[in-house]
Design a protein around this nucleic acid. Structure first.
Lengths: 188, 188
DNA sequence: GAATTCATGTAACTTGTTACATGATTTA
DNA sequence: TAAATCATGTAACAAGTTACATGAATTC
């Protein structure tokens, strides 16, 4: 469901093609959502069928034809209803593949888990760095207009969540490594 | 995919019915995974078809018949391969419905977001409390056998991740509230 | 007498992933 | 000349959700 509202949210600011929307999802919003073209085009079709979007084809001379999607009144209403439903209780169900694996790790090779966790820590540190860049980009961008400045407050919140999460992952990774290493020594 | 390995992991310790597996998922492993019976029975069927599980029906006089699933040699091999693949890079893609909503929140009602975040903080605090109970349960349980003691190290790691995550959510929630409240005051 | 537990599923649907297909233009 | 960009998708599949169905035994 979230992807559909994400598409509506982006189209609420500006009419776009599926291709452009895909770029937003896989560049700007990438750190908390991503989507394949196959899903985007399918969902755009559904949203149009439901009357939340309209499309018109724009001929281009040198490039392929564009199918430009525009949000309708009913689409805007639906988006607003969704945005104002701020019951976040269902978001706590955090399915985590890593944790299933860790849960059963006594059956596996401890050394592989250790090096896996080391990589995991390094990856999260890299991600932390990239979040700093995202914040810099937002800083630059936020002076363009009053609207963007207002938006940027919320964009920073999403980045902030990413930062806190990455830091938490790193903290957890180190904690696990310590346990595993001391446990390893005891078994020598 | 994780659910299938979760089922294999549980069945590796003890043969069980779909019903018992469902209880494990929705009681013990609930805080990082959950599953409906419909999915469990379907996946058990697939795992059996692939030769990872075998089943036999046990007649019961007073209760409904049981279909007891047992892991096969090939199932154990498959589980071990999966456990020893410790590349966690794909687990960083954290799709987050909450963040999509926050990203577009300048379009919505700020006061609804504030009260939503307050509830979110309260929920996470509640969850933190429940993790403490889970740790107590593990403490009690871990003395039963050497095997369980060894397992419990990893169980605690999963709980620890839950705790760090919940604390992070709370920290983030407060951070957002402060921003929203000061922003609100400026607009008076 | 009502609700819960035990124990099995099926059906229909939504969401997300992987792989494939087309074909011109532009950049390295 | 190879790769990337622009721009559209389809097909098949995997994973997850929601709703429904059955029926006895036990507990409140």
């Amino acid at each position: 469901m979230s992807l559909k509202y994400g598409l509506l949210g982006l189209l609420d600011d500006k009419s776009m093609t599926g291709y452009e929307l895909m770029k937003y999802f896989n560049e700007s919003l990438n750190f908390f959502w991503n989507a394949q073209t196959s899903q985007i085009y399918r969902d755009l079709g559904i949203l149009e069928k439901n009357g939340f979007l309209e499309s018109k084809i724009e001929k281009q001379s040198t490039k392929p034809d564009k199918k430009l999607y525009t949000i309708t009144k009913s689409g805007k209403e639906s988006l607003l209803l969704w945005l104002n439903d701020c019951d976040f209780s269902s978001t706590l169900k955090n399915r985590d593949t890593l944790l299933i694996k860790v849960f059963f790790s006594s059956k596996g090779d401890c050394h592989k888990l250790i090096s896996g966790l080391q990589d995991y820590i390094a990856l999260n540190m890299k991600q932390l760095e990239s979040y700093k860049k995202v914040n810099n980009d937002i800083d630059k961008y936020s002076n363009i207009s009053e609207k963007i400045h207002k938006d940027s407050i919320y964009w920073r919140m999403t980045v902030s969540k990413g930062i806190i999460l990455a830091k938490g992952n790193i903290e957890w990774g180190y904690e696990c490594l310590e346990i595993l290493k001391s446990d390893n020594n005891n078994n020598l």
